[in-house]
Design a protein around this nucleic acid. Structure first.
Lengths: 238, 238
DNA sequence: CGAGCACTTGAAAGATTTCAAGTCCAGTGG
DNA sequence: CCACTGGACTTGAAATCTTTCAAGTGCTCG
């Protein structure tokens, strides 16, 4: 199982490959390790904009997103907001928490989740080496994602951030066929994820549309020129 | 994939109190778990500005910083640079890596490291539950640190970033007694860590000095008013 | 059909960066 | 021992990018 992850990781340097790695968490073998948990799982539904867990809550459960989209949110005193990441179907939430969450998780749209008691996860991890290893690798992958975002937020321009975001969504959104992205999140969420204002997000998207790089229809964006987007995204040196 | 263990920018509630909480993550028991590795360790020295490992290198070793300061670096094609974090004596590096590093690690000043073969770490982890658990928690803590930095880079102003940085250093620098910080890193490193330019770093520091909040003597900064700094840092809502 | 909300777009304001000089030491060589 | 040189750090002024403030559009829902 770990072999699968490692093999994928070899394709380093190719930005697209790198991104997909971050989400390809569910390989056949690793699904087996996680499958042990299934018997302890409960399926729950959460409506759009409802909280799944709050910032500072005890980490009593872990989750797997079955359908829909979830955002992880940190709020500052004055209301400034940072969305750490968007989680899509198949993504996991809370498996790498300590005993409390340091961010809230909210449903972006109506979502279905599979929920597992954390102490079952911990108990199983104690006795199952494969699962343990799997959990550690998953957390490492989350960390790698976070580090890529540090570069995005610390060093990229607004256009580069938007381009990177669109390319990431093109790979991660379920059914993003033919370069058509049905974005579940609004412009405000995108802005709070990319460290921009909603106006800047709109302006950059508008610019890309006028250039012919993308087409926009409300929440659906079609990538018309992904080479242009990739150049604009300025990925890391390799 | 940074491997800072005992530190975290955990920011709920009283930021200072919270920070020390995670420091105590290194309990006697957990130190014992890591102590198993000691027999496989080698001590090495690296001169200032030399590379410890490159971006993309196979993760053959893990490290513990014995003395000095290390920076983790990501470079973009055009030379823009992001420093993920600074590691101080006692911090760990590479324990949460996958099979390659996605960032370089460089000595900020002359450093002494203790180096452990990764496969020994993995082998021990397979058979030792305490160590395994310890590794997972360490990675989770790194992740929490990274998330706090996402807020800093995505939503804080230049002054807030500098204030947060100084407060973090006040806690993490070995021997930061009496609010005197001997910063091992230069202004350029600080800028590349905080997503700013060197000029902005200088200007904000100069402003704080003129205000009487800090005093500056080359690489040594004295905090004269830490309440002012804490207010300026704008920590997270709790 | 009107209200409300999300999204757009324009114009002015503001924060940070860029460009350009300096200043201040530490180390070097005379 | 002292002047000199290079690098790190400061500081000022103009340029630039993004935000803020303001309006306006368009769609959805009641």
């Amino acid at each position: 199982m770990q072999a699968t992850i490692q093999r994928t990781e070899q394709r380093f340097g190719n930005a697209a490959a790198q991104r997909s790695v971050l989400r390809s968490a569910i390989t056949p073998a690793s699904r087996d390790a996680l499958a042990l948990l299934e018997q302890f799982g409960t399926t729950i539904s959460v409506h759009a904009d409802r909280e799944i867990h709050g910032q500072g809550d005890a980490a009593a459960y872990c989750y797997r997103i079955v359908t829909g989209c979830v955002r992880t949110v940190k709020l500052m005193e004055d209301g400034r907001r940072q969305i750490g990441e968007f989680l899509m179907a198949g993504d996991l939430l809370g498996f790498d928490a300590l005993d409390t969450f340091d961010f809230a998780a909210e449903a972006v749209c109506d979502v279905t989740l599979r929920r597992y008691p954390r102490r079952m996860v911990d108990a199983l991890a104690e006795s199952n080496v494969a699962l343990t290893r799997r959990l550690r690798d998953m957390t490492s992958i989350s960390l790698r994602t976070a580090h890529a975002r540090l570069v995005l937020l610390g060093r990229k321009t607004a256009s580069e951030r938007i381009a990177s975001f669109l390319l990431e969504m093109a790979e991660r959104l379920p059914g993003a066929h033919d370069h058509v992205l049905d974005l579940p999140m609004g412009r405000t969420d995108i802005a709070d994820h990319l460290g921009l204002t909603i106006e800047t997000v709109c302006r950059v998207l508008g610019h890309l549309r006028r250039e012919g790089t993308i087409a926009i229809e409300r929440s659906s964006i079609t990538i018309r020129n992904d080479v242009a987007l990739q150049q604009m995204a300025s990925e890391l040196r390799h």
